[in-house]
Computed example of a mutant assay.
Amino acid sequence: MAVEHRSGGDGSSRKQRNAGLPDGWQDVFLAALASTSNVAASAREAQVPPARAYEARRGDPAFFARWQAALCEGYDHLEMQLLQRLRDGEIKPASGAKRGTRTFDNATALRLLIAHRETAARQRAIASDGNAETVLAAIDAKIEALRSRARDLPASPADGDQGDAP
């Protein structure tokens, strides 16, 4: 959706502001923003001043929406990189050793797990298409299976000493 500016309504103001800018700079900028989450680096990649990118964001609602989507994608990439590092560890130099030592940031990994536990549980429920009745029926079935197995177990000699146990 293009935003008209007040200089006659023919888009000439937009053309004047985009004069001298590379064609397709917005697409290049947004692709870089999605991969780096960094406005200044994305503007360099698109060969535009960062102020021009911010101006376009303020003046064009469609560009603003694409900017937000690119930032979300960038944060998703960042989260995946962090998870990779937390899972695989980092090689840090060990003093006096020829090789580094793999270290793990367990505290950060634990904080991430706690922060995303509810989201993960919700996604699992959606994926299994389970509702409350289905979950309760599954729990009841498991309890009944446990009771059935307990009834089928042979009585131990110690059980006879306790009188009439159910």
Rank of each mutant, 00 (worst) to 15 (best):
A2C: 14
V3Y: 01
E4I: 03
E4P: 13
H5K: 00
S7Y: 12
G9K: 10
D10T: 13
S13A: 04
R14N: 09
K15N: 11
K15Q: 12
Q16A: 06
Q16H: 13
R17N: 01
A19K: 08
P22V: 03
G24E: 01
W25I: 02
W25S: 06
Q26K: 06
D27T: 03
F29H: 04
A31S: 05
A31I: 02
A34V: 02
S35V: 11
T36C: 02
N38M: 02
V39Y: 00
V39C: 06
A41V: 02
S42K: 00
A43W: 00
A46I: 09
Q47C: 10
Q47D: 14
V48P: 00
P49K: 14
P50E: 00
R52C: 01
A53E: 05
E55W: 09
A56F: 05
A56V: 06
A56N: 03
R57Q: 10
R57I: 03
G59P: 06
G59Q: 11
D60N: 10
P61S: 01
P61Q: 01
P61I: 08
A62W: 09
A62N: 15
A62C: 07
A65Q: 14
A65R: 13
A65N: 15
R66L: 05
R66Q: 13
A70S: 10
A70Y: 06
A70G: 10
A70E: 04
L71C: 04
C72W: 00
C72K: 12
C72T: 13
E73S: 11
E73I: 05
E73T: 13
Y75A: 07
H77F: 05
H77Y: 09
L78D: 08
E79L: 12
M80G: 04
M80H: 08
M80R: 14
Q81K: 15
Q81G: 15
L83G: 11
L83T: 15
R85D: 08
R85Y: 10
L86S: 00
I91W: 14
K92W: 14
K92L: 10
P93N: 13
P93A: 12
A94K: 09
S95D: 07
S95L: 14
G96A: 11
R99D: 05
G100R: 08
T101S: 07
R102C: 07
R102H: 07
F104T: 06
A107W: 05
A107R: 08
T108D: 02
A109C: 08
A109T: 00
L110P: 10
L110W: 15
I114W: 02
I114M: 03
A115S: 12
E118K: 01
T119Y: 04
T119A: 14
A121G: 09
A121P: 03
R122Y: 11
R122P: 03
R122L: 15
Q123K: 04
R124I: 14
A125R: 03
A127R: 15
S128G: 15
S128N: 14
N131V: 03
N131Y: 01
T134C: 11
A137I: 02
A137C: 02
A138S: 10
A138I: 08
I139W: 09
I139E: 10
I139C: 12
A141D: 08
A141S: 13
A141V: 00
K142N: 07
I143S: 06
E144W: 05
L146W: 05
R147C: 01
S148N: 15
R149Y: 15
R151N: 12
D152M: 11
D152C: 09
L153K: 10
A155L: 11
S156W: 09
P157V: 04
P157K: 00
A158K: 03
D159V: 01
D164K: 01
